[in-house]
Design a protein around this nucleic acid. Structure first.
Length: 207
DNA sequence: CTATGATCATCC
DNA sequence: GGATGATCATAG
C-alpha cells in the first residue's frame, strides 16, 4: 500500500474534478449494483482506489494522518446542497466514556480531513461527477468548542442513561445515530449534520 | 463480529 | 421535505 500525503492527495483529487466517478468505478471494478442491491459506499471506495490508499485513513511517511470523506450533492434552486449527513466514526461506549474529546477517535478524524462532494443525479447513479474537493482541519477553526460539547453530551448520556438512550436528535453539529449492519444491530456512529457538512465542504458561509 | 465506505427508508 | 432510524457491500 502506497503512502501519500494529504497535500498530494488533494492535488490529485482536484485534478479529478469534473470527471465521472461512475466510469472510474467501472474501470476499477468497484461494485455499484449487485443482484439488484446497491453498494452505498461505491463512490468513496472509488476515490480511495484512485488514490491508491487503503479502505480508511492512512498514515503517510511523515506521520500525517488524514481522513477522506465524500458526500452526495443535489442541485436546488441552482445551488448545490448536501443531500445527506456524513457518518464519521463508530461510537464505542467504553472508549467514549474514558476518553476526553481531545483524545477521542472523533477528534482524531476531524483534525485533518479531505472532504469531497459529488453529483448525485438519480437512483441509478447513471453519472456522478466529482464537484468539490476541500480540506478541513477542525482545530484551526472555531467549531471544536461546540463539537466538544456535542461529544460530551454523548459521553454524559451514556454515563447517566446508557448507550441505548442516545438518539439522533442530540448534538448541534455532531449527532449520535444508529449505524451498522441493521437487522437488529444497535450500534451507533457520530454523524455530521448537513449544515455543518456544507460549511466544511466550502459551499456555505460560516454562520 | 467490528469497522470501513456511506445512503436508503420511514416517520413526523 | 427534513430529521432520525435502518440498512447495503466489503475487509479483516
Amino acid at each position: 500500500m502506497k503512502n501519500i500525503t494529504r497535500f498530494e492527495a488533494t492535488q490529485l483529487l482536484q485534478r479529478l474534478i469534473g470527471q465521472d466517478l461512475r466510469k472510474l468505478a467501472d474501470e476499477r471494478n468497484i461494485t455499484v449494483f449487485k443482484n439488484g442491491k446497491f453498494n452505498k459506499g461505491w463512490a468513496g471506495l472509488t476515490l480511495e482506489k484512485v488514490l491508491g490508499i487503503g479502505n480508511n485513513c492512512i498514515q503517510a511517511s511523515n506521520g500525517d494522518f488524514w481522513e477522506l470523506k465524500l458526500v452526495p450533492l443535489v442541485k436546488k434552486n441552482g445551488i448545490w446542497k448536501v443531500k445527506e449527513t456524513m457518518a464519521i466514526t463508530m461510537i464505542n461506549p467504553d472508549d467514549v466514556l474514558e476518553k476526553p474529546f481531545e483524545k477521542s477517535h472523533l477528534c482524531d478524524k476531524m483534525k485533518k480531513m479531505i472532504i469531497c462532494g459529488r453529483e448525485r443525479l438519480n437512483d441509478k447513479e447513471s453519472s456522478s461527477k466529482l464537484l468539490y474537493v476541500n480540506s478541513f482541519d477542525l482545530l484551526t477553526t472555531n467549531f471544536w468548542k461546540q463539537i466538544k460539547e456535542d461529544y460530551e453530551l454523548v459521553q454524559q448520556t451514556i454515563k447517566m442513561e446508557g448507550f441505548d438512550a442516545l438518539t439522533g436528535s442530540m448534538g448541534r453539529y455532531i449527532q449520535p445515530r444508529t449505524k451498522g449492519l441493521g437487522h437488529g444491530s444497535n450500534t451507533r456512529a457520530f454523524y455530521a449534520r448537513v449544515p455543518f457538512v456544507e460549511t466544511i465542504l466550502g459551499i456555505r458561509e460560516v454562520e
